[in-house]
Design a protein around this nucleic acid. Structure first.
Lengths: 232, 232
DNA sequence: ACCTGAACACCGTTCAAGT
DNA sequence: ACCTGAACACCGTTCAAGT
């Protein structure tokens, strides 16, 4: 970015701060995934030496946490807030949250494995989201002791679904039909004729066009199972 | 492993082969995840120079595929085969498959992101598994055009659930109760009193003890939704 | 306090040289 | 064909030196 070389030594005004680092890091991950986020590349984008980053963050994992926190804050809590205010149903709230959650993280599949194992205490925005969802579910009549179970079940499905969006749409294609692929071929073809457009290799969007029906199917399953938990 | 140094040049008998490489690679991943699988470490375990590996595999991704294939073959297809033979119900078959699938991959969470986006044609055992499941579901009366949808929905949930097993059991613990964590704290505590043993730090198994109820919950949801698809 | 630049211990992969 | 060892272009992170 900045090309005029800076001499060593403390600059008059700090060049970096955590927010700026997080912003540029997110840019890199947005462009081409977590693998393209390297301290070297990030430093280059910021116009500093890689070692300068360590004045502001502990390590690379610290940066990933910053990114995560920024992303979680993009998840819509509107439905849940409306549920708390008794302006939406449990079903509506779950649907809104799930769609938004999946949409956000489907853009960043490479972050999902990290997110899945990150403790909420490490990410304030994540904590806030869970807290809101917990309040909403509890106030909708789900017994306290079952709320976490529901949240985790949804999340597992949402993580997996977000990974799935990143899969190639040719994931079930087989090279040639053998005994080991005959049935798979048959059901894959049957799925296609339902809705999908013809496959022209020019499809600009490489994302998995077959990801949506399974998502809707699973989401419906989870929502109706959740509604059965509501106490009178 | 082997300590007597070998001089350069082609050995009388080949030292490596793909199967041996896959076996040792799986050992490394089993011990401490995909990150600990490096060409250097793997070569050391095999008693060769890292560059020797490239006589047998294309690259590291190729090795990961070999591992994947070996793992998929551990997933139980018994239930599905019994369903095909009309010796098990759809519900039993789905339950058996899902439990086994999750159990296998919960041991290897670091592989899940890769598995989720790997095309079946790249992994013969994976192809075989999907083909069997597809045949079983179709023969149980699920319309051809819906089979893939069901499989992908299950898989999304299974991938996410397997990631969840790897999460620390303290994932929902908060450092101190603030306004942003009050509800979460409450429902987490309510979950604990139900079943969990007191937390003594000496717990040998660091895996997430809270992962099972959500898994059962989601699985039940998916199974009953699936059964509703069966044609008369 | 906050930067640069050299250094360290790694990576994955390529390739000439050896048998 | 199948190995070794040097080499290349990277990593993340540390640290002395500069202001």
């Amino acid at each position: 970015m900045e090309n005029q070389k800076r001499s060593a030594g403390r600059p008059a005004k700090p060049i970096l701060n955590r927010q700026l680092i997080a912003q540029r890091a997110l840019d890199l991950v947005t462009a081409s995934g977590l693998d393209s986020l390297t301290m070297t590349q990030l430093a280059k984008k910021l116009g500093v030496a890689a070692s300068a980053l360590y004045n502001h963050v502990d390590n690379k994992a610290d940066i990933v946490l910053l990114i995560q926190d920024a992303l979680v804050s993009q998840v819509s809590l509107q439905g849940m807030q409306r549920l708390i205010a008794q302006q939406a149903t449990l079903e509506e709230a779950l649907h809104d949250w799930a769609l938004s959650y999946r949409a956000v993280f489907a853009e960043y599949p490479s972050l999902i494995p990290t997110i899945a194992v990150t403790a909420v205490s490490e990410s304030p925005k994540t904590l806030h989201m869970y807290n809101t969802v917990a309040q909403a579910l509890a106030s909708a009549g789900i017994p306290d002791a079952q709320v976490i179970k529901v949240i985790v079940a949804f999340e597992s499905f949402l993580f997996g679904s977000a990974l799935d969006v990143d899969a190639p749409s040719t994931i079930f294609d087989t090279d040639d039909v053998t005994e080991d692929s005959a049935w798979l071929d048959r059901v894959v073809k049957a799925s296609r004729t339902k809705s999908a457009p013809a496959i022209d290799g020019t499809d600009a969007d490489a994302r998995n066009q077959y990801a949506d029906p399974p998502f809707q199917f699973g989401l419906t399953a989870l929502i109706s199972q959740t509604m059965s938990l509501v106490e009178a």
